[in-house]
Design a protein around this nucleic acid. Sequence first.
RNA 1: GCCAGCGUAGCUCAGUGGUAGAGCAGGCGCUUCGUAAGCGUCAGGCCAAGGGUUCGAAUCCCUUCGCUGGCUCCA
Length: 605
Amino acid sequence: MKGRWRWVMAVEQKERYEQSVLYRIRHSTAHVMAQAVMEMFPGEAKIAIGPPIADGFYYDFDLPRSLTPEDLEVLEKRMREIIAADHEYEYRIISAKEAKELYADQPYKIELIEGLELGGLDEYGEPIDEPPEISIYAHDTFTDLCRGPHVERTSKINPDAIKLLNIAGAYWRGDENRPMLQRIYGTAWESADDLEQYLWRLEEAKVRDHRRLGKELDLFSVSEDVGPGLILWHPRGGMVRKVAEDYCRDEHEKAGYDFVYSPHIGKSKLWETSGHLEWFEENMYAPLEIEDQKYYLKPMNCPFHVQIYKSKMRSYRDLPLRFAEWGTVYRYERSGVLHGMMRVRGFTQDDAHHFCRPDQMPEEIDRVLEFNLKILRAFGFENFQAYLSTRNPEKSAGDIADWEASTQALQSSLDRSGLPYEIDEGEAVFYGPKIDIKMLDALGREWQLSTIQFDFNLPESFDLTYVGEDGKEHRPYMIHRALLGSMERFMGVLIEHHAGAFPIWLAPMQVEIIPIADRHLGHANNIAERLRERGFRVEVDSRSERMNAKIRDAQLQKIPYMLVVGDREVKTDSVSVRLRSEEDLGAMRVDDFLDLISREAVPSV
RNA sequence: GCCAGCGUAGCUCAGUGGUAGAGCAGGCGCUUCGUAAGCGUCAGGCCAAGGGUUCGAAUCCCUUCGCUGGCUCCA
């Protein structure tokens, strides 16, 4: 549903889609919808573009008034009539002049035609290679500037397999300085069953939504009184985070990282030197005045780690140095972009900075990439998409030659890793190119977790040096990296990925002990104690409720193990094990259960 | 930030100009039960906030705050 669906799909998948019947159906349905909208506002509707997207299509319009949900029903009804009339889609290649006459009263179309005519810009305003050819597709009263392809006739669209979904604002050509258009999103499938399935999928996605699960499982909240985009971690969410962090810290230690800590604010001079005030100020909060000095809340941890590096002379023998910190940063994000835990204003990065000699750089990138994947896999992630972000000409510091060399270094490392990746042109941060690893959320939106960023600018601007074998000063290279990204976003993605049923080692509560009657409480507490001694997270449901109710509640809380204890279990020092999958493992001795959970409550490998 | 929609009890929601409701959750009793909700009872609300229209506003209008879906921007 996101505009960037084009990049979410792998290239081959995208090409296959563009040749599919479904693609033509959706494209044609978009035209039918546009016709219905034109009829609703005769002479007043201005049409923009209407392409197929991942699970449907959209069309952008400039209209005299705002559309309402009721309008969608009217439009949908009219669309079915148009479809039923079985109009043919007629293709024609026309000259630019002819096209301009045809769309004399359609300013957006005129702009598109001029783009094609003058210099090969496609409908998104992006450059294209092929020589542009202007073509139109017409059916019934509607003629669209369009390169197709379409179905032959409107009757190829199944009237029971289309649905208009929602209305949204969208800037013309994605530029916030240009007019805001009204976008109608719709979906179209080959069969009513497919549509049904798709709608069901949307409902399913809502069930996995981390904001809903966050409430239901009591993991986190956002308080209006604290402020938007500021997360409060509840005990259960906090436990998941603690376990995740503990694991990561241990792994970092094994991987040769040092742990550092840094403050939340720093003098303006620091941020001037680092370039943040030049390049990142719009994301930084207003400074605090302390004794006539301006201090800024940190949006990144790097300048502090750089200062630690600079605190003494470094020898080539000391490198690489790897400073890790779970550093909490604050960034101003525009109010409309905030989204649960996924997009917030204060977050804790599992951040680290590597300082190394130029000759160590390739190995250092290889290592961090490998370490990165290992960590993500431990949390049950298998499918991610890597991107190589290249220089943004309008937002970059330093020499172009350095940019090229470092981009090349990252790319070779990606090639060596065998990880599939795509190039994100112009998406780099101001100080260097980066490798990003992204995950999809429940609704198919992608979120960036890991980032590995090359930096040749901070070593320069802070004049970082090490003494080489030759006794002279040399400039180290620097890598910024965050693997989980931010604990907040990671938690959000983790919740959705597992639909709230965390892997056993991460589950905030691992075992619920369910005594059948009060006389079984003693045995229940005894078992709980034995499990706690072994480091497991256990609680006894001692409420005056029926066993069924206790099971239901534990099930809803997605607690991995429910241990039912009644007369039979007390007699034999055993427990009846029920899993959250609803599987009933039957009775087993407490010691056997301890073996079971010890085997299962571990990170994936 | 922009376009649109929404904001009623802790949660999910009904109420659309005439005395604020339900279910769940919570408190208190009773119940002691074998794999997804035992029964009863009590309490809980400045209807997001502020202003206006009206004899009368949860309901209509305006402003602000917050949330949701997009757009732009980003970990």
